Amino acid sequence: MSVDTTTPATPDDVVAIFRRVLQREDVTAYSDFFQLGGDSLIATRVLSAVARGHGVELTFEEFLAEPTPAGLAGRITGAV
C-alpha cells in the first residue's frame, strides 16, 4: 500500500521558502525569484524544500516557467 505524502501549497508557503533560501524578508507572492537575486544553484534549494515539504518534485523548467511563489504554489497544487 502506498502512502500519499503530497500536500497542496499556498503562496505563503512558498514565500517562506523564498525568504529562507534568499535570506530576504521583502518577498511577496508575486516576487520574481531571479529578480530578487536568485540563481539556478539557489533554485535547487527551493525545489528541494518543495519536495520535502509538499512531496512534489518540480523540474527546473517548471520553476523557470513560474518563478514566483504564487506560480509555484499553483504548480505544486496542480501536481497534488
Results as ranks from 00 to 15, higher is better:
F34Y: 13
P11L: 02
F60S: 05
D13K: 10
T7H: 05
L47E: 12
D12E: 15
L47F: 06
V21W: 03
G55M: 11
T44E: 15
L41C: 01
V21P: 13
A51C: 10
S40G: 13
E25K: 03
D13P: 13
S31K: 04
T68G: 10
R20D: 15
A79W: 06
F33E: 10
Y30E: 12
Q23T: 10
V21A: 03
E66V: 03
R19M: 12
V46Q: 04
S40N: 12
D12T: 10
A43L: 08
A51Q: 14
D12L: 15
I42Q: 11
V50S: 04
L72E: 00
L58F: 05
F18L: 12
M1W: 01
T59E: 05
T59K: 03
D26M: 11
G74Y: 01
G37W: 01
T5I: 10
F18D: 11
T59C: 09
Q23L: 13
D4K: 00
V3E: 15
E25H: 02
R75I: 00
P69K: 01
E61G: 09
V14S: 03
V3Y: 05
T77C: 08
D13L: 10
I76V: 11
R45A: 13
E57P: 14
V21I: 07
A16N: 12
A79P: 15
T44K: 00
G53P: 14
D32W: 05
V27P: 12
T44N: 10
P67F: 02
M1G: 15
P11F: 01
F63D: 09
L47G: 07
V21R: 02
Q23H: 12
A16Q: 14
M1S: 14
T10K: 13
L41W: 00
R45C: 06
A73L: 12
V46A: 02
V27M: 11
H54A: 10
Y30K: 11
E25T: 09
D32N: 15
G71Q: 07
A79F: 08
T6H: 06
F63G: 04
D39C: 07
D4A: 01
A70T: 09
T10A: 09
L41D: 01
G71F: 06
E62T: 10
V27Y: 03
F60I: 09
A29R: 09
R20Q: 15
G74F: 01
T68M: 05
F63E: 07
G74M: 05
G37Y: 03
V50A: 05
G71Y: 03
E66C: 11
G38Q: 05
T6V: 06
R45N: 13
A9I: 07
V21E: 10
A49I: 00
H54M: 09
L72D: 02
P67D: 06
T68A: 03
V46F: 04
D32I: 04
T68F: 04
P67Y: 00
D26S: 07
D4L: 03
L72A: 00
E25N: 11
V56G: 05
D32V: 07
A65E: 13
E57D: 13
G55V: 04
V3L: 14
